[in-house]
Design a protein around this nucleic acid. Sequence first.
DNA 1: TTAACATTCCAACAATAATTAGAATGATTA
DNA 2: TAATCATTCTAATTATTGTTGGAATGTTAA
Lengths: 217, 217
Amino acid sequence: MKNARNIKDQLYEQVARIGKVFSSPKRLELIELLCQGEKTVETLSRETSISVKLTSAHLRELRMAHLVETERQGKNIYYRLADKSVADLWVQIHTLAENRLIELQLALQKIATQPNDFVPSNRESLMKAARKGEVVVLDVRPTEEFLAAHLPFARSIPLEELRQRLSELPKDRSIVAYCRGPYCLMAKDAVELLRQEGYTAIHLRDGVAEWAVASSL
Amino acid sequence: MKNARNIKDQLYEQVARIGKVFSSPKRLELIELLCQGEKTVETLSRETSISVKLTSAHLRELRMAHLVETERQGKNIYYRLADKSVADLWVQIHTLAENRLIELQLALQKIATQPNDFVPSNRESLMKAARKGEVVVLDVRPTEEFLAAHLPFARSIPLEELRQRLSELPKDRSIVAYCRGPYCLMAKDAVELLRQEGYTAIHLRDGVAEWAVASSL
DNA sequence: TTAACATTCCAACAATAATTAGAATGATTA
DNA sequence: TAATCATTCTAATTATTGTTGGAATGTTAA
C-alpha cells in the first residue's frame, strides 16, 4: 500500500535530521567542543575561528535537532549537549571515519607525536599506573573544561600555563598528556614542550568523550 | 598558527564525509536494507521504491565513503556493508533520533502493534524463553535475509508465505515476530495476521543489527 | 532611561546536493 | 557476433544548505 511508503518516508526523514547535524565539518567541531562542557556562542566562535553569526546559525541546527540545550546566564547564552549519547555518537562517527578513510589516517599521522602515542590497548594499564602514581596524567585543556569533566587521577595544567608551571611536574616519571581528543593539537604541543625540557612525555589521543565510550565497553 | 587551522579543517572534513552519508533519508533506508545482507542495485531499488539510477547514485556516495563494498557476480553487482560498525552506527543514530525527536516518537506510535511491543528491557528473558521453547521467535523477512543472519533460535517464515504456512506455528505458545528493524512494517503485518487467526503474537522491534548492538553492551 | 553587549532573526547570494534523462560500459545469453 | 541486461557515468536542472550583512531582541550596567 502507498500509505506504508509514506510512513517510512517520515521515519527516515526524522532520523536524517540527526544525520544532517553530523554532515558539516564546522558543526562537528562545535560538537567536539561542546563535549568538553557548556560554552557560550562567543567562546565557541573564538575557539573554532568561525564567525559569531555563522556559529549561531550552526548552533541553531543543533538546537532544532534537539541535540543541544541552551541556558541564559546573564548576558550570555550557554550551550550544552542535550545528552551524553550525543558525545557517544560523535566518538563513534569519528572512530568509524578513522577506520574507514585512508585520507583521515594519513592526515592524523602528520599530527601524531612521534614515536608512538597511547593507543586503546593499554587504557587499563594506564589507569593502573596512574592510580599507583607511577605516571602523571596531565590535562592541558583550559581549567573550565577540566572542571566540567576529566580523566581519573588527572592533574590540570592548561597549555598556556605549562611553561611557567613545569616545576610542578616530576622528571622521574612519565607524563601522559591529553586534551580534547584526537583532533585537538594541545596535547601534541604539550608533549613537544615537555620533551624539550627533558621530561618523559607521552601523547594520549583520547579526550573525555573517547575515554567514556571506551570505558563503557 | 594558521597551519593548525588548516590541519583541523582537513580532519573534520574527512569525518563529515561519513556524516554526510547518514544525512539523507534515502541513503539511510539503503543502509538499513544492507544491514540485512548483501543485495543488488535492482533489489535495493525495488525494496525502497527508489529509481535504479538514483539508487546507484546514492550507493556511489556510500562507496566513496568506503562504507560499502561491491562484488560482481555474473550480471549483477552486489553491495554489502564494508564493516559491522557501519550497521552499529546506523543503530546508534536511529536510537538517538528516537530518544531526542518527539516527532519520530509520534510517528513510531502510529505503527506500533497494540498494545505493547517488546522493549529492550526483556531481551534476556526472551532468549531464555526461546531457548526453552516456551516462545517461538519468528523471522518474517525474505529467506535470503534470514540466511545471511538471524536472531538466535529464530524460525524463518517470510511474510508472503505466512498465511499458507500458519499450520507450522503452535497456538499454545507466544510467537514473537521480528523483521528488519523498527522502521520495517513486516513484523507488524505478521502480528496482525497471527492475532486474527487466533495466535498469541508479539511484535519485537529489533532487527539483527539492533539485536547485535544490544547484545554487545 | 540609555548605552553597551551577546545573540538571534531575516533576507540575499553562493555553494553543494538530489534528481532525472541519455549515453556508455561490461558481462551474459542466443 | 549481436542482442540483452544490469549498472554506472555525464551532464543538466532543481532543491537544499552554507554564508554573510543588517536589523531586531533581550539583558545588564551606568
